[in-house]
Structure formats: C-alpha cells, structure tokens
Design a protein around this nucleic acid. Sequence first.
DNA 1: AACAGTATCAACCGCACCAAT
DNA 2: GATTGGTGCGGTTGATACTGT
Length: 370
Amino acid sequence: MGKSPCRDEREGLKKGPWTVEEDRKLLDYIQKHGHGRWRILPKNAGLKRCGKSCRLRWTNYLRPDIKRGRFSFEEEETIIQLHGVLGNKWSAIAAHLPGRTDNEIKNHWNTHIRKRLLGMGIDPVTHTPRLDLLELYSILSSSLYHSSQLNTFPSLLGVGPLGNPNLQGLATADHLLSSQYKTPEITSQYDPQQNQYHNTLVSNQFQSSHPIHELNTSTYATQVNQFHSAVQETQPCAASHTLSTPFGREPQLTQAKLEQLSPNLNFIRQNTLPNVWPSMGEQLNLARNDFPLQNVDSIIDPQFENEILQTRNNIDQQIPNYSFGSLIITTTSPSPTPLSSTTTYANCSSTEDERDSYCSNIMMFNMLAK
DNA sequence: AACAGTATCAACCGCACCAAT
DNA sequence: GATTGGTGCGGTTGATACTGT
C-alpha cells in the first residue's frame, strides 16, 4: 500500500537544492512546532516544498545533532563491521553512529569503502574474496603457476598485480578454506626510544577445530624460517617505496622466494566466526595488492599506536574466544624517515587515497597485532 | 587557460511498512 | 478487509567540485 511520491511539479512545488531562506523557514517552524506531520508542515511553514522533501532536508542536513566532516577510523570500522552483519541496512547502521545519517553512511560506503574493497578483490556485498576472480585465477594458476606469464593476468582480472603473494596463495592453495595453520604475518611496532620499528613475524595460532596433531610442526617451523628469510631479504624497506610496487627493488628475487612459500600463504576461513571482524581482517590482508612487509615501515605511524591498541581491546571484548597466535619472531629495521601522515605516502597523489590506504592497513594490523 | 573525465554528496524517486479509518 | 495517510528506506540522479591532460 505504497504512498505516491510527492507531486511537486504538478502542484508547483519546488525541487532541487535548498536555499538559505528555505532552511531558515524550516528551522524556524520546527523550533516552534516540532517536526512530524510532514505533509502539512511545508504549507504551515510557508514553504513551496513537499513534506517529503522537508523531512529529508531536516533529517539529513538541518538536524542539530548531525556530525559533519570526515568519517573517523572508528566510524569506518563500525560501518564495515555492521555492513558485514546487516548488509545495506543503512538506517540500522546509522543507529550505531551518533550524528551520522543513513544517507551519509550510504554515500561514504559507495564512494569510499566499497571501492576500496573492490580494489582489493573483496566483494563488498558478501565481504569475502571475489570467488569469480579466485576460481578463474585458480584455473589459470594450475597451468601457469610456474610460468612467467602468470603475472600478466592480474590486470585482466582487475585485481591488481598477481604478484600479491597472498592472492596467489589463496588461489593455489591445496586446502583452500580448510588449512590447519595460518600464514605467518608481519606486524610492526614503533620503538620511540630507539627511533626504529620492530617488525614482527606472527604465526597465527591454530584454531581449536583443527587437532594439533594434524600439524607437522617441524615443517611449519621451517616454513616460518623461510618466510623470515624472505622478510630479511626485503629489508630495509624504504618508506619512499610506492604502494604499487609490491616487491621493491628486487621484485623477482623476492617474489620467487615468496612463491616458494605460497602454500603457507593460504587464505583460511577457519572457524565460522560470530563476527565479521576476523574474516574481514584476513580478507583485507589477503587482498592487499602489496606484500604486507613492504608496507610495514611505510604505513604505521606511531601516533596511531593507541588507535590500534584500542581496536584490539575492542575486538578482545567482542570476541573473547578468538585469538591469534603465539609464535613470534622479531626483527628490527631502521626507522624510516620522520613520519607524518603525508610524508609517509609521498608517492600517493590523493589525500583521500592515502587515508583509504592507511585505513586498510590499519584494519589489517588490527587483526595481526594480536 | 580550457576542456574532459572523475569523484562527491545532497536531493530525489519509488516502494514498502504501519497505523488509522 | 480495503483504503488512505504518514513515514522510512534504499537506490539513483544530477549539480558541483576536483583533478588530470
């Protein structure tokens, strides 16, 4: 029993952008009489608008509690989490973000977050890696895995360089979605006293659903060591490396090393988690077009350490039984040049891109820093 | 400087739901 | 139960700003 939309033009009502004068009339009226009864409101307020237009203007723009400006990291976190659960229920998502309207969140999702996820090969609807790409790549990689032609396909798929070892690992994994162990990952911590970063290789611990005896720990330790060696070969990571050159100055050497480790770079959908966060973290990490290590020194800014810790604490509270692993290998790399959010991304042209990239990395680190 | 292409976001549109009649 | 009015929601549009050539 739907209502017909307002018949503005037939009734000579105005459409389009609101003028200051119209805003003032609407505000004056609502301050005196409150909102509601939108159908009769414009007539009483002396506005040549339909009630629907007035309601929209009020709820999306004039409401005094509306927060303006950029979305904070925490807000983006919340949006992604909630979208994973609620889908495009923008009003429901907005209910968790005081001062933000559903329209604003929807726009931000469509113009920023959605694009970012797509660019990383993640389906923004399902929050999982795009299976179409994965299946295609799996087919291709089965015949081309050892071929140099392999690296010509990513541009066709529109997912960035397949030099991304994580994506390769994902597509070539024997135990796709069911591996017993997780990829060792790199995290980084800034030591202000020594003015340098400690890169940490973290082996994410096995999930309880997989009996520990199934694991060949010796093999795993060897793989971790190999991975560690590959890590060391890429050191030091200059902060000026662009985000689009995944393997630094010796791409082929490093990539070859990483390809040796590809079975260890599986994407693992281990336990079905009650929350999208862990899987999102995996996917964000997985889908990055850059080898994580490459970004360790070029992304993390000490000033965000607290944010990371805070987010970790939030995750701990929300998912008390979920934890990442225990095997930790620490390396130290020289501190990059003095960091700021702008100089860190010296080769990125867009401030928005910088921030998007930063947020993606932060989300990754949030999951890895445990 | 001029133009074209792209990004952003306020506003609109159509539909659905619910309550009142 | 059918109709109507009020409101909310999600998708889309279009004006404007921005960026690149």
